[in-house]
Design a protein around this nucleic acid. Structure first.
Length: 878
RNA sequence: GCGGGCGUGGCGGAAUUGGUAGACGCGCGGGAUUUAGGUUCCCGUGACGAAAGUCGUGGGGGUUCAAGUCCCUCCGCCCGCACCA
């Protein structure tokens, strides 16, 4: 009798409905089982899911379903990162309200996600643009304001002239806005900040505790925080020329090289530079010139070191007769350290280049003394350093440095630090040890409409007044004009006009909204009690956090993950959570990539438009419609601009969700890029059908077992062994997120079951082993292909596999009575030897020597050595 | 420049962590069945060789009974950061 093909289009919605009806995946906070929190980085509701989502959520769903089967109370929620510029842009283009646009997109994407069969708890869903969510975010902001973790100051900011908004440092890439790509300008504005810098050291130190994070991400964050230990040192002006200050203060990490100093350089933005510019047009012109050169990576790469000699000089702290000239230099940054440095050309490449250009002395003070045999060698080395092209930046021993001579670099640092701390200059120590961080405070003000309003009011008498709790949330108005440049909230006729909460005087609402990264910095906490009347329910959040397995793209290695780590600390400081680190395990998945295709005119062609024939170097592509030749290009990230995307909806329509999921899991390790290919998907679909056929044919085959079949037949035992070995291996692979390996183990089991069923002489023992193996197969593939698993499970006569515990491995089946040793002669495999697993070493040796192949190889000689590694290998050394 | 990762058949990738290299899949070749439309089943598939065998995990060297795995060195590719004092 012919078995009908498995039809995912009918089966998948049926099982999805069943799970929804039975509330299979709704999670309760009160539950005696141990908790497990799985989370994928939530999506921006663009309107359609893409293959990156499919991969991300498939990975998470496998973990969620597996952990559920292992007896955990699993929290696996989904929400929407719903504020942000695209909604405003779409609104301008299509004349719809950003709110309408966003919620329509959410509805469409929710349906697509549901068709993937994810085991999400939809009862906890929210969007960050829900007033019920951002009300609590405003409360968190006010608590941070009260604690001094949020503050306002005038600062130079990155201004995106296209998006007409301020960007955080993290959102400026190569001097361009991360969304618009426009060259970012510098502007002075009063902005709101979060005091992330207060946690610099903690955020850095705690990275060491995140042992279930990729090393790469920890390293990127470490570099971003950028800790450096050094000193601030003040140099007094000599009075040769009138100076605008008494001293200039520099930051250095190489105070050991102080005797090698030959100049001071200050930033063009340094107050001393500004003061000089005010009285000297030449200085002003130079500073202007510095500002004009670009800030892009390319511009910096090629920019020449430029300096302006101010004719001022300062006194060296240890050498009375040494006066150092003061330059304004284009490579000194005002926002790092003190905006001023001392130049030590011999031991810093930049200073070296600068010294060569302006003919300043190069004084070597550190040398690899131990590597020289004679003093003459040292002299040669010193000459080469002075006349060459490169500074010496490595370790060594101090020379030419008075009291430091002969000391190591760390010893010299310590000595200099102590002396400068104990030297008084104008009523204060001349030097102070200082730890410096690259990390700046997080500027969160955005001059946009579609974001969370910052809940403060500016009163002419009382200044910044927090919006009282009872007035939260500060809601966004619906009636806004979006087609004028600037902030729509500012244009609104009435919204910003309010009475001061203290004195009722006419006041102005803050019209800045928060950076959308604030929204995503605490959503994982809100999922634990999404309807709580406070931002968090302390009992729920403390029970659920940290997220046990967080999954997302590497592109959030710094921004989102660092902000969330800060925000969790801020929430702890304001009493909203009880822990520091939100994500215990982090997994960064690879991208989905696809071949690209180009038309003869250089425009991109989509995979749907073309046909490919041939293989290897002979692959040729044509346009299906007109037969025009197509050039096959490189494999790149799926993107609309290259037109190499494949719509998940189309795939799920023709093959079903399980096929898409299986392909995503099977082809590449999850952390690497996966190449989407039509052949691969077809292969995954074949496998779906193959499993179905196996199960359906077996269920139909009701042939009675042959009578009198007692005991365990060898075939039955072999199949049972194969099944349990596959189970053990697949589970191990799933636990370590090596899903491609788990897939391979499942294939092996299917092959073994197929062979057993094909056996014409099935006895009762084998029949029962087949039944067991099929059950195990369905249970172990259920996290990956949940719909097919349900269909098979039902066909095998059971109820709802999603609720079933993970099967236990019968450990007794993993061990065998015999072991087949590979027999090597001089490290090359020459034979095999099957022998009792517990055979003593002497027996193994004897049996080995008796083998024909070994005899032949030995040719009468006595082996020099026989290495027997029990249950591994035998190596005969001749 | 600094930091990190990677390099295994035609392709994606396995390899119990020093112990039979190439599991599993894709592709390809051959055969059978069905021929109607991403069919199913069997056999083969690292290279060279008729075979025995020899070679083989980017190149070279080393440690070891044994190296894809450890050490040294060179080459190539990818990613992150970058005038940070």
């Amino acid at each position: 009798m012919a078995i009908e093909r498995y039809n995912p289009r009918a089966a998948e919605p049926r099982w999805q409905a069943r799970w929804a009806d039975e509330r299979t995946f709704e999670t309760k906070n009160e539950d005696p089982r141990p908790k497990y929190y799985v989370l994928e980085m939530f999506p921006y509701p663009s309107g359609r899911i893409h293959m990156g989502h499919v991969r991300n959520y498939t990975l998470g769903d496998v973990v969620a379903r597996y952990m559920r089967a292992k007896g955990y109370n699993v929290l696996y929620p989904k929400g929407w990162d719903a504020f942000g510029l695209p909604a405003e842009n779409a609104a301008i283009q299509n004349g719809i309200n950003p709110r309408t646009w966003t919620y329509d997109n959410i509805a469409a994407m929710r349906e697509q996600l549901k068709s993937m069969g994810l085991s999400l708890d939809w009862s906890r869903e929210f969007a960050t643009c829900d007033p019920e969510y951002y009300a609590h975010q405003q409360k968190l902001f006010l608590d941070m304001l009260a604690k001094g973790l949020a503050y306002r100051r005038k600062s130079k900011v990155n201004w995106d002239p296209v998006d007409q908004t301020v960007l955080a440092n993290e959102q400026v890439i190569d001097g361009k806005g991360w969304r618009s790509g426009a060259v970012v300008e510098q502007r002075e504005l009063t902005q709101w900040f979060f005091k992330i810098s207060e946690y610099s050291d903690e955020l850095l130190a705690a990275l060491d505790t995140l042992d279930r994070w990729p090393e790469k991400v920890r390293l990127m964050q470490r570099n971003w925080i950028g800790k450096s230990e050094g000193m601030r040192v003040r140099f007094p002006f000599t009075g040769d020329a009138p100076a605008p200050a008494e001293t200039v203060e520099v930051f250095t990490t190489r105070h050991d090289t102080l005797f090698g100093a030959s100049f001071i350089a200050i930033s063009p933005d340094h107050p001393i530079a500004s003061a000089l510019a005010a009285r000297d047009p030449l200085v002003a012109a130079f500073i202007d010139q510095c500002h004009k050169s670009g800030v892009s990576a390319a511009a910096i790469e090629t920019a020449e070191k430029m300096g302006y000699d101010t004719c001022l000089s300062v006194q060296h702290p240890f050498v009375a007769e040494l006066r150092l000239p003061v330059y304004i230099a284009n490579f000194v940054l005002m926002d790092y350290g003190t905006g001023a440095i001392f130049g030590c050309p011999a031991h810093d490449q930049r200073d070296y280049d600068f010294a060569k250009k302006y003919d300043l002395p190069i004084r070597p003070v550190v040398a690899p003394v131990d590597t020289f045999d004679t003093d003459a060698d040292l002299v040669v080395w010193l000459e080469q350093l002075a006349s060459g092209k490169e500074a010496y930046v490595d370790d060594g021993t101090l020379i030419n440095s008075d009291f430091l001579d002969g000391k190591s670099v760390p010893e010299a640092k310590e000595d200099v630090a102590q002396r400068l701390e104990n030297t008084m200059l104008l009523g204060a120590p001349q030097g102070q040890r200082q730890v410096n961080y690259r990390l700046r405070d997080w500027g969160i003000s955005r001059q946009r409409y579609w974001g969370c309003p910052i809940p403060v009011i500016h009163c002419p008498d009382h200044g910044v007044v927090p919006v009282p709790d009872k007035d939260l949330p500060v809601r966004l108005p619906d009636d806004v004009t979006l087609d004028k440049p600037g902030n729509p909230l500012n244009w609104h006729p009435t919204w910003k006009h309010v009475a001061c909460p203290i004195c009722a005087k006419p006041s102005l609402r803050e019209t800045d909204t928060m950076d959308t990264f604030v929204d995503s910095s605490w959503y994982f906490a809100r999922f634990t009690a999404p309807h709580a009347p406070t931002p968090t329910d302390r009992k729920a959040v403390d029970a659920w956090l940290p997220v046990d397995q967080y999954i997302g793209g590497i592109e959030h290695a710094i921004l989102h993950l660092l902000y969330s780590r800060f925000f969790t600390r801020a929430m702890k400081a304001t009493g909203h959570v009880g822990l520091d680190e939100p994500f215990r395990g982090l997994f960064t998945q690879g991208m989905v990539v696809h071949e690209t295709y180009k038309n003869a005119d250089g425009t991109w062609a989509s995979p749907a438009e073309i046909k490919i024939e041939g293989e290897g170097a002979n692959r040729r592509a044509w346009n299906v419609a007109n037969g025009a030749p197509i050039e096959i290009g490189g494999i790149e990230k799926m993107s609309k601009s290259k037109r190499n995307t494949v719509d998940p909806n189309d795939i799920m329509q023709s093959y079903g969700a399980d096929t898409a999921r299986w392909f995503m899991l099977s082809d590449s390790p999850p952390e690497r890029d996966v190449i989407w290919t039509e052949e691969g998907v077809a292969g995954a679909f074949r496998f779906v059908q193959r499993v179905w056929r196996l199960v359906a044919e077996w269920a139909e085959d009701k042939a009675p077992a042959p009578a009198g079949a007692n005991g365990a037949s060898p075939e039955a035992v072999a199949l049972r062994r194969a099944a349990h070995r596959s189970l053990a291996a697949a589970e191990d692979a799933i636990r370590t997120l090596r899903f491609n390996v788990a897939v391979a183990r499942i294939y092996e089991l299917v092959n073994a079951i197929g062979s057993a069923i094909a056996n014409p002489a099935k006895d009762a023992m084998l029949r029962s082993a087949i039944a067991e193996a099929l059950d195990l197969l369905v249970l172990m593939m259920a996290p990956m292909m949940p719909h097919l698993a349900e269909e098979c499970w039902q066909t095998l006569g059971h109820e709802l596999v999603a609720m079933r515990p993970w099967p236990a491995v019968d450990a007794s089946l993993l061990t065998e009575d015999t072991f087949t040793y590979p027999i090597q002669i001089n490290g090359k495999k020459r034979a095999e030897l099957t022998i009792a697993i517990d055979a003593p070493q002497a027996d193994v040796e004897q049996a080995t020597l008796a083998l024909d192949a070994v005899r032949r190889a030995l040719d009468g000689q006595t082996p020099k050595k026989i290495v027997v590694v029990p249950k591994r290998i035998v190596n005969v050394v001749v």
